[in-house]
Design a protein around this nucleic acid. Sequence first.
RNA 1: UGGGGCAUAGCCAAGCGGUAAGGCACACGGCUUUGGACCGUGCAUUCGUAGGUUCGAAUCCUACUGCCCCAGCCA
Length: 566
Amino acid sequence: MIEISEDKPANFIQHIINEDLEANINGGRVHTRFPPEPNGYLHIGHAKSICLNFGLAKTYGGLCNLRFDDTNPSKEDVEYVESIKRDVRWLGYDWDDRLYYASDYFEKMYEFAVQLIKDGKAYVCDLSPGEIREYRGTLTEPGKESPYRNRSVEENLDLFQRMRDGEFEDGSRVLRAKIDMASPNLNMRDPVLYRIQRGTHHRTGDKWCIYPMYDFAHPISDALEGITHSICTLEFEDHRPLYNWVVENVKIDGDSKPKQIEFARLNLSHTVMSKRKLRQLVEEGYVDGWDDPRMPTISGLRRRGYTPEAIRDFCDRIGVAKSNSMVDIAFLEHCVREDLNKRALRVMAVLNPLKVIIDNYPEDQVEELDAENNPEQPEMGSRKVPFSREIYIERDDFREDPPKKFFRLAPGREVRLKHAYVIKCERVVKDEETGEVIELHCTYDPETKSGSPTASKRKVKGTLHWVSAPHALKAEVRLYDHLFTKENPEEEGEDFKDNLNPDSLEVLTECLVEPSLQDAKPGSRYQFLRKGYFTVDPDTSPEGLVFNRIVSLKDTWAKIQKAQKK
RNA sequence: UGGGGCAUAGCCAAGCGGUAAGGCACACGGCUUUGGACCGUGCAUUCGUAGGUUCGAAUCCUACUGCCCCAGCCA
């Protein structure tokens, strides 16, 4: 019995494991597995399963295997197995030497099938796919037995061997379990165990032309690996009797009796999670690839700048239960903010620059000002930031006609420049034709220098970030927003693509960042003061820095503005 | 209409017969050289509905309602 911790109550799976341990089932072992099919990229929903399976193994001192469920060569590819391994590792999990493939067990599975035939529990069926469907019956009516159901063991053995030998065409015959055509559970109406399907498998090549179905391969793989708790999602609940039937009827060496437990998969608001839909977004060009920073894929989140720690924390905090639910994406965002707040270096970057000339600041003077790297973590030290007569501030931080509660710069108003001085806006220069504000002329008060004893002689309500004009570095900044405008884009009766957010990506090419970012490395993360958390995109080159916005900072002013509009 | 599940706040989610944890969101206040962070306060007289059992019910019983999944030779 394990109590995880005082402040984190056990979930229902842990309760089950606790009971099993108490009853000494499987000799007190806990052994789980993460069993992806290599037919797509992993997404945040898989992360929930990965954290659950590897996490359970860790808290109970057990093991978790990585196993590729590769029983359908027509859909699977090595590209996916490589990406999956990379993603699991990146999330922080290690399968040691326990990397398995269902295809490793094909020979054994074949033997188990032969044994089932010998026991009179499986038969070769010649019905066409359409006929099998007809014979299966419906939700409310029982099925009919196949005319091939009572073939002799010898005939079945011969036919199954010849299926393997490639004597029959794809789809012409299958091996079926002999269970109960009248079962109210459709999965038990003589389910297909093997089908003939020619196609080159990414691992076994052309060795096989028959492949086991999930329902046959999965329990066998679990039993072979000594899995104790086989955790899957809710839609497999109806398959559990069949899972148990296979475990009971296939005589596998070893004492492991795996138990299937189902939990609710993760749904996240403002995005889609099905492989089919994600693939569609990629293939039809709605996004830039599987690792587009707007995608809920692990590779997308990684490129977006999410940390594995934040994702693990998220998975840990959403809980595990059996009710279908939709987690607000704001919660995921909260988790990264919380993580990055502790560790991200603070720097200044101006996304939409507006020039400010400080008229009373000496023409050629440059000061190297002290700037803390992270007020939360003083041990992260400080850096120097150049200050000069011409600087840039955020265009949004100036309003010629400031609304109520606007604490920033406006004609005649004073604000503090972070790490520097208090300045006052004296004059606004506008383009004569368009009326657009081109530059601001300000004065500064030398006594208000940050850190000096007289720094706070003036009380100002606003503090702005800025960059020194002659020192700033140009950068491209990509602002990402939710991929979909609707909380649930897959709502019934509509095309999910109609709910795509047209503003999910905004590219700013005229941004200016402080010079300390000169050698920023791809993958490193920063807080752009007052703006949000950003990461250096791999598109960064000697020609220019490229940043992705991971998530914005919480913005009280935006909230006030929204309220004022109403 | 068969079978399998699930219903606790706007969103997650504890609770397992002794009188509704926690987080997110939201609101208000404090602090602040980030309108960030942080700190404090508020936020379910009630657990899908209706009955019943009990001194006592979100927890047990009965009936009902709503939602999800299942008729691939996909996983």
